[in-house]
Write a protein that binds this DNA or RNA. Structure first.
Length: 291
DNA sequence: AATGAGCGC
């Protein structure tokens, strides 16, 4: 408008101008001549029409020799007798497809569904708030001081799937299969009873008979100890204390057996024995977590 | 000399 004659000083104006090339034509004719026509504003602020004709030729220096050579092949079949090279009337050059590399499959999922968004928002609303399911205190249920004295959650009271506080409407079939997070097979309603083949009666893994091994070399690995103590019986778990940063061993480890008698025997046999130029020191471990 | 990780509402 009035600013037409004012010299442009702002770089932003330039950007705006270049944002609108207003291309009106862009085609390739049968001879491979690409023509583009666009309107632009030149330096004097005048509207100009720019017509470009570009002859697309394969440059042998940029193309592998054998590929460039094919341009000269005599045509056959329905194209017999036509001149060599691609006929732009019948042949199009594939457009560039940009390949997006991403780790995992998360980024490939489309925009979240309304339900997912709702879920996310609900989760955000309650973020940072921890409520014990047993005593309603501000701690995780697993940390509840009344965990043992209050009626537990492990009975039939709380179904493992779709808890008692879930609205009845969510029991639709899709919700049951896709609605939530992963449910381990042993926890699925139709699946095998929990631990039919895995767990022993009367114990979570926290009360396995566990030995504390000290004075091991810093590069002792879990498998080394598994091999060493496996001769006394089935080893349920091996933990090597490591530096969080460097991953180097801190000189101690825990070895849990399935059977207390085997652990006892291992301790008696191995305590004071040499391993890696060091004398093993073995005691019963104290429970990691007091209750 | 030396006593474990993470899950999660």
């Amino acid at each position: 408008m009035a600013s037409a004659g004012v010299p442009k000083t702002s770089w932003a104006d330039d950007v705006d101008e270049s944002e609108q090339p207003a291309k009106v034509e862009d085609y390739v004719d049968e001879n491979g001549i690409r023509t583009t026509v666009e309107y632009a504003i030149n330096d004097e602020g005048k509207k100009v029409k720019i017509t470009r004709k570009i002859k697309r030729t394969l440059q042998k220096s940029l193309v592998e020799h054998s590929v460039a050579e094919r341009q000269n092949w005599a045509k056959f079949g329905q194209e017999r007798g036509n001149k060599p090279g691609p006929d732009r009337a019948t042949t199009t050059v594939g457009e560039n497809v940009s390949l997006k590399i991403s780790a995992g499959n998360k980024s490939s999922e489309p925009e979240p569904s309304p339900e997912q968004t709702l879920k996310t928002n609900l989760a955000r609303a309650g973020a940072g708030k921890v409520v014990c399911r047993l005593c309603k205190g501000e701690h995780f249920t697993a940390k509840c001081p009344y965990k043992d004295s209050l009626p537990g959650l492990d009975g039939a009271e709380t179904p493992p799937f779709g808890g008692d506080d879930a609205p009845a409407e969510t029991s639709a079939a899709p919700a049951a299969t896709t609605g939530g997070k992963y449910v381990p097979p042993s926890m699925r309603p139709g699946g095998r009873g929990a631990g039919e083949s895995m767990s022993r009666p009367g114990g979570s893994r926290d009360d396995l008979p566990t030995l504390r091994i000290t004075n091991i070399s810093e590069d002792t690995q879990e498998n080394d100890l598994r091999d060493l103590f496996g001769t006394f019986g089935r080893v349920a778990r091996v933990y090597v204390g490591r530096d969080r940063e460097t991953g180097a061993g801190k000189g101690f480890a825990f070895v849990s057996f399935e059977e207390r008698a085997n652990a006892q025997k291992a301790m008696e046999k191995m305590h004071g024995r040499g391993y890696d130029n060091l004398i093993l020191n073995i005691q019963w471990s104290q429970p990691r977590e007091q209750r």
